[in-house]
């Protein structure tokens, strides 16, 4: 896919705010420099996850994503990519290790509403309400900002309607706002899921293969919308992506997972497609 290259060349580097630089830590008691990631949005340390008695879905995984960073998780099927996102959302409990999002520990239980509102999540199968309209689905992203009674009666503030329309416009489906979600095509459904996440205005966006099933043109449009939101909101993006080129060019850093283990973490700009593909396939050493 040439999408990401276009995005990149379209000015992400120049338009994006400069990301914090790793290693601004200081010195320890012995005078040695200490590498402290500034303002971590996501921290995972020695995380193990197991479904029942099967082999571990994640083993000894450590991950640190800085605020405002765009980070991709790549790896073959069954390598634990989606599990990693579910761990961060507290949908899957860990067997061992520590996980924190926005400085708050995640313990495999339902997080508090205010914390949940700060972390957007686009699951692999999107989680749209099929019997609701496109506009209603988009508005579901702002439920945390609307009171119980107002939302129960469907009385959303005008500003939220405006936000929903803007998000739908950003993803190019505003003309479908009255259509029911189950009447949309695969690509339109994906764009709607992204619109909902944009309406939510999260500090972290977790997206699970949200570009799959999209043609190149649509994927480019979706990535542009996400790029715009990233720049405007300054949100952290952690995306599971199967397209290595998109992962490498759209994201600042790329983590490769294989069989539940973290193989390596590289800068997107410092690695080429061939090398990344070799790491992905396991034919090259990290």
């Amino acid at each position: 896919m040439k999408v990401a290259t276009d995005i990149d060349s379209a000015g992400r580097a120049s338009a994006s705010p400069p990301l914090p630089v790793l290693g601004q830590g200081g010195r320890d008691a012995g005078g040695a420099p200490v590498t402290v990631p500034p303002c971590s949005a996501i921290e995972m340390c020695d995380v193990w996850v197991r479904y029942g008695k099967s082999a571990p879905a994640l083993q000894q995984v450590c991950l640190n994503v800085r605020q405002g960073e765009r980070h991709a998780i790549v790896g073959p099927s069954g390598s634990g990519k989606s599990t990693l996102l579910k761990v961060l959302k507290g949908l899957v409990p860990t067997e061992h290790g520590t996980v924190a999002t926005l400085g708050t520990p995640v313990n495999g239980k339902r997080a508090h509403r205010q914390l949940r509102a700060r972390i957007g999540y686009i699951p692999q199968n999107l989680g749209l309400v099929s019997s609701a309209t496109v506009l209603q689905n988009a508005l579901m992203g702002c439920l945390h900002r609307v009171g119980e009674i107002r939302s129960w009666l469907g009385l959303f503030p005008e500003a939220e309607y405006r936000a929903a329309h803007e998000a739908l416009e950003a993803t190019g489906i505003s003309h479908l706002s009255d259509r029911l979600a189950h009447q949309l095509s695969g690509g339109e459904r994906r764009r709607l899921a992204i619109s909902r996440a944009l309406v939510q205005r999260p500090e972290i966006l977790l997206a699970d293969e949200f570009l799959s099933e999209l043609d190149d043109v649509t994927a480019e449009q979706v990535l542009r919308g996400l790029d715009k939101a990233h720049r405007e909101l300054g949100m952290t993006v952690l995306m599971v992506e199967h397209d290595l080129q998109v992962a490498r060019t759209f994201c600042d850093r790329v983590t490769v997972l294989r069989e539940g283990c973290k193989v390596c973490e590289v800068n997107g700009s410092e690695i080429d497609d061939t090398r990344l593909r070799d790491l992905f396939r396991g034919v090259a050493a990290a």
Binding site: R113, N125, G127, V129, A132, E148
Partner: peptide, 30 residues
């Protein structure tokens, strides 16, 4: 019901009452 919608809307910060109003009832109405 498909748990994805509950997870996704719940993850967006919806309360339990809002989840019932916007996901559970519409999806199970039929």
């Amino acid at each position: 019901m498909d748990p994805a919608a509950i997870h996704a809307v719940g993850s967006a910060g919806a309360s339990r009452v809002q989840l019932i109003r916007y996901v559970v009832l519409p999806e199970s109405a039929n």
